[in-house]
Design a protein around this nucleic acid. Sequence first.
DNA 1: CCGTATAGGTAGAATGTCTAGGAGAATCCG
DNA 2: CGGATTCTCCTAGACATTCTACCTATACGG
Lengths: 112, 112
Amino acid sequence: MTSLEKADLLQGTLDLLILKVVALGPVHGYGISQRIRQISQDVLQVQQGSLYPALHRLEKRGWLLADWGESDSGREAKFYCLSARGRKQLAAEEQTWARLSNAVALILQTAE
Amino acid sequence: MTSLEKADLLQGTLDLLILKVVALGPVHGYGISQRIRQISQDVLQVQQGSLYPALHRLEKRGWLLADWGESDSGREAKFYCLSARGRKQLAAEEQTWARLSNAVALILQTAE
DNA sequence: CCGTATAGGTAGAATGTCTAGGAGAATCCG
DNA sequence: CGGATTCTCCTAGACATTCTACCTATACGG
């Protein structure tokens, strides 16, 4: 059910969220999901089964660059950072989000 | 592509939008799509192939009631109105939308 | 030694939305 | 009158995204 009631996040915003979090500095996948949960104060949470396919998708589209490194806890981890095209994409998606969410707000604001 | 760039609407918000528009008074399907476009100032537009399945879905779930009548232009049209459960559902979805969209805003507001 | 946290991943199902069609009736324009 | 456009309903099939559920492996605390 993509109905608004149960979703862990707003459908279609996952790419935007990932790009935005990665823009704050290199992170690995696991860290991305943690940051999204923390910054959103536990409202949004990305399941791993959504996260990793999304990361591969974004990398394949040339928006993310990945390389292996060592995480804080000393484990192998794949760190992602934004490419130039990813930065453009992020800007575009931020703008689109603003347009669409404002439009939804317009409709919800109509007096009853 | 459900990526934010090209969508006609924010995925997962269609039910909410329909319920909200119907809450303003009985409308037929065609009128719903027009109102959404107008109120959103041409930002959001529902394709007919999305609209009618959604209406049937909402009716089947008991949130909308339908009956045939005559439209302004004298044609047969199916008018929808909210059921009691639909009203509850609308309230719930409005709240969820507020929670989720605020959470997205939180993430987008993180300083760079 | 076992459970939890960290870190990566895949497969399959469910859902929603879009594109692309089809249909009929009313109205407007030339 | 003929043709185009608007109004109104609908379905089928393709597609992308996201979820649940599962798998692997290492480190650490009790």
